[in-house]
Design a protein around this nucleic acid. Structure first.
Lengths: 143, 143
DNA sequence: ATGGTTGCAAACACTTTGCACATGA
DNA sequence: TCATGTGCAAAGTGTTTGCAACCAT
């Protein structure tokens, strides 16, 4: 009963964030939990429809914004003119965006904390977060 | 006559890109030339108005898109839900975005080419470009 | 019971497009 | 001259908001 335990975890997460466990919220949280790419709202809605959970787009935007506000998710942009959302719980990582097929993969092993320290020292700019994305061709698209 | 020489350079740049030298294009190119931050379309239009160059927003969007297509400018996003444009001629650099006052400053001394080589080796992903932005508090906003 | 959530519709911000007119080379 | 560029208005995305009805706690 993997699904059930995931649902249970999601309910706890919502409770911890002082959010009510509604079907749409649970489904979105589960979706983000099992997906390894940041998702846009259109994709989330499509997923909900397929699973017979109807949810207005306004609701979905409100949910992901609320999640982001409460620290459950992170909002990112990949130079597309729209936002994507991913779980905030994931360890610090960045993305490889294939310009041909649109595939997005994570990379986690890039240490830029040294760079941030330099910036704070040299510029007096207190770094709170950063965005680092790479664009190019994934291995399949190079063939 | 600094202005005149800048204008002259801009005209050449446009000619090299096979673009006609219209007043709006020249003005936008000059603006980007003398500005050290990536600019959004609203800001560009405001500047044009102040200088009595009327240009429809559709025209400005067409111009910056054409510039980007021809390699004169780069289109970037700073997690704002809109695009900004800066000269492509600028050397590889990134931005420090102050979350309080919105100020944007450039940083150029961050060597991530080593990182890109690693990615190509480890992931087989051919990196063509990257986006790296830092968000936080600029020195004035920390006081 | 009641405050947080939702659906719906309307509005919003940003960007693109179609077409007739205008203009730079 | 004539391909290229522009203004205008309309439409296209992605996102937010007001308000009444609804539902999880």
């Amino acid at each position: 009963m993997i699904q059930a335990s995931i649902q249970h975890d999601c309910k706890m997460e919502l409770r911890d964030a002082a959010l009510k466990a509604t079907p749409a919220r649970l489904a979105i949280l589960e979706l983000l939990e099992k997906t390894d790419k940041p998702l846009d709202v259109a994709t989330i809605i499509e997923f909900l429809r397929k699973h017979d959970i109807q949810a207005d787009q306004a609701t979905v935007f409100r949910i992901v914004n609320m999640f982001t506000e409460r620290g459950l998710t992170k909002q990112i942009q990949l130079q597309e003119g729209k936002f994507r959302y991913e779980l905030a719980a994931k360890t610090d990582h960045h993305h490889l965006v294939c310009l041909k097929c649109g595939d997005i993969q994570d990379i986690s092993d890039c240490n830029i904390s040294g760079l941030e320290k330099d910036i704070e020292k040299k510029k007096g700019f207190k770094v709170l977060s950063h965005a680092l994305e790479f664009f190019g061709a994934c291995s399949s698209c190079q063939k």
